[in-house]
Amino acid sequence: MIRRLALALAFTVALPAFAARVGESAPAFTGTDTNGQTHSLADYHGKYVVLEWTNKDCPYTRAQYSSDNMQALQKEWTAKGVVWLTILSSAPGQQGYMTAAEENEWIKKVHADPTTAILDPTGIIGRAYEAKTTPHMFVIDPSGKLIYDGAIDDHPTTDPSDVDKSHNYVSAALTEAMSGQSVANAYTRPYGCSVKYANEGE
């Protein structure tokens, strides 16, 4: 009995402490935004939260912003009370790394409209969610449950003209969840550039 318990314990420890998994509680995190304010996921209990991993120099992200699609989504959903957090997990020196001032400048320039942008140069939030690509999207429901994990849409290209033809998974997930339905496509393969994490152990 004790042996079995010990084995179970060893097994639990071997697993990552927080793993993002659709249908389960979204990993908790605390991060600092471009205005120096701290935000915790717990602060937004009771609201829908969208997490958007970004890297402005990634061609896939660029396609979303140059087509104005991402900005439109941010405006549409924040107007409906959704908390939209843009997250930058690029490590210093890597593509897409931005200081707070640079990111604010960039947001103004492209007319982005997230609730706020969180700087995650250590990649702690990214790794907790196992964010793989830019863009990689997550939707969390008011109870804190992860209800969508995956790509922004069904057209994995860098061509801005493809965006209009695409089925947007994030909008679909929010629409379905808000009308009390279950999310039809709750997990898709995220596409894009890899998140430029700091190399481990270097």
């Binding site: 120099d57 990634c58 593509q95 860098t158 550039c193």
Partner: peptide, 8 residues
């Protein structure tokens, strides 16, 4: 798509 750390 060609990539090293960055993708083009």
């Amino acid at each position: 798509l060609v990539c090293r750390e960055v993708c083009l």
